[in-house]
């Protein structure tokens, strides 16, 4: 499982990463982006125009299938019920965010352990930092977009301040890294 989390300034990078995944890329990818509930409600449709993979916005207990890209819906936290399905949660915001990247990273680590890669991109909020540490403590792999390159460096920087990352990479390196996982 690959989870990509991001906030302000991360959308272009998500486009780039998904756009460069080959059609037969079969590891499921989950995208957790902070969104204004009144803002782009059609993020999944937008992402679908950038990639050959199937893109779905998650509904409660959505089954997890190979070769699909899943998008967290606005105003819910996305959790993993088990290795084969998601579960949504409408509880308090975490780090002023719902969806919160920390929440999804942690839940992913509980369910997938060392079969999880979490990638944290640009943003103006510290969400994701705590989650990445938790992922590492559960033997998952953490990747942080290089603050030098990220459009808004705060989020990746906070992650590096609060813990270590397995990899700090430019976006082309993140792409190579993802392709090697397959």
């Amino acid at each position: 499982m690959i989870i990509i989390g991001g906030s302000a300034g991360s959308l272009q990078v998500v486009f780039y990463l998904l756009g460069n995944c080959p059609p037969d890329f079969d590891i499921p990818i989950l995208i957790v982006l902070h969104r204004d509930p009144q803002g782009i409600s059609r993020l999944a449709e937008l992402l679908a125009t950038k990639t050959t993979l199937t893109v779905k916005e998650i509904e409660d207990k959505e089954p997890i299938e190979k070769g699909c890209v899943y998008v967290c819906p606005p105003d819910y936290h996305t959790l993993f019920e088990d290795e084969s399905s998601f579960s949504l949660d409408y509880s308090e915001k975490i780090n002023f965010s719902r969806p919160s990247i920390d929440v999804t990273f942690r839940s992913g680590a509980d369910v997938f352990g060392n079969r999880l890669v979490c990638i944290l991109l640009s943003g103006a909020n510290a969400d994701g930092a705590d989650g990445l540490n938790y992922v590492r403590s559960h033997s998952g792999i953490s990747v942080v977009h290089s603050p030098e390159e990220a459009e808004v460096r705060y989020m990746p920087e906070q992650a590096l301040l609060q813990g270590k990352a397995d990899h700090v990479l430019r976006k082309d390196e993140i792409m190579q890294f993802i392709l090697r996982l397959a």
């Binding site: 936290h77 959790l79 993993f80 019920e81 088990d82 509880s91």
Partner: peptide, 9 residues
Amino acid sequence: YSRASFRRR
């Protein structure tokens, strides 16, 4: 209950 949400609570 969904184990994932219950755990969070």
